[in-house]
Amino acid sequence: MRVEVWSDINCPWCYIGKARFEKALEAFPHREDVEVVHRSFELDPRAPHQARAVLPVIAAKYGIGLEQAAAAERRVADTARAEGLAYHGEGRDGANTFDMHRMLHFAAGHGRQAALLDLLYRANFAEEASAFAPGRLLELAVEAGLDGTEAARVLADRSAYADAVREDEATASAMGATGVPFFVFDRRLGVSGAQPAETFTAALTQAWDSRTVIPLVGIGETTAEACGPDGCEVPRH
């Protein structure tokens, strides 16, 4: 069974929702048969690439004062900590995440996507240093186990994996997703938001139990030529 997760590094509820989903997955009896794929979603594609303080952005977006924005950030931080997550709630910043998403697609091709995603969340929400500082993304890519030279080449080529990011975003839009996190189970069952772990447990169970197993029907001769571990058969005629 495949679970696709649309998320953005700027999204604190994606950080929290990931932890809740993983808690449910850890206790799921069939967890070894579940493939988790992380998909791209930009909350603000027009955000500048230069880091900016998060609180003024929140205040402007929702038409509230800085103190109200700070109070909201503290509540999110408390929720994250209740899930066992580190959260640096003071002076956090944000920026455009398109390059991060491109790097995550590059990492997926090398089996390091999950490791890089964890590092990106940690850098953005749990550390004082900015995740968007110059050179930081490359450092995290190397820390995740990616080759530094190849990763630098991807970052320098703005077209690298750009289509993959856009395809993820187009798919999310076609599915009706307007926010993240957004979890899709076998392209049949969707769960929006950082739901409690119990909700994810129910979704995993429902998706697993409702799988359609298509019986294999043989057609043609069972003795037709084929290739196997020992080589290819020699034509009989």
Rank of each mutant, 00 (worst) to 15 (best):
E143Q: 15
A160H: 00
F183Q: 13
N10V: 11
F28G: 06
P215I: 00
P45Y: 08
D209R: 14
L216P: 01
E32H: 08
Q195D: 00
L25T: 03
V234T: 13
H49A: 13
A80S: 02
G135E: 01
K18Q: 12
A27K: 05
F41C: 08
F41S: 11
P181W: 09
A164M: 11
A107N: 06
T171G: 01
P181K: 05
P134R: 12
R75T: 14
A156I: 00
H30A: 14
A151D: 15
A59T: 02
E35G: 07
T222M: 07
E90D: 11
A141D: 05
T201E: 13
R52Y: 12
A27P: 04
A95S: 04
E169G: 11
G218T: 13
A77K: 06
L140F: 01
G231V: 10
G109K: 15
A82E: 15
E67R: 11
C227N: 06
V5H: 04
V54L: 15
R46D: 15
R188N: 09
H49C: 13
T222Y: 06
G17V: 08
A86C: 01
V54A: 14
L85D: 01
C232R: 11
R31K: 10
D99R: 13
P56E: 01
A202W: 11
F200P: 03
L216C: 04
E233H: 12
G193P: 09
A82L: 07
R74M: 07
D118A: 12
T178F: 10
G84R: 12
R136N: 06
A172V: 01
A80H: 01
R81M: 12
G179W: 07
P56F: 02
V3D: 03
D209K: 13
S130D: 13
A51S: 13
G91R: 03
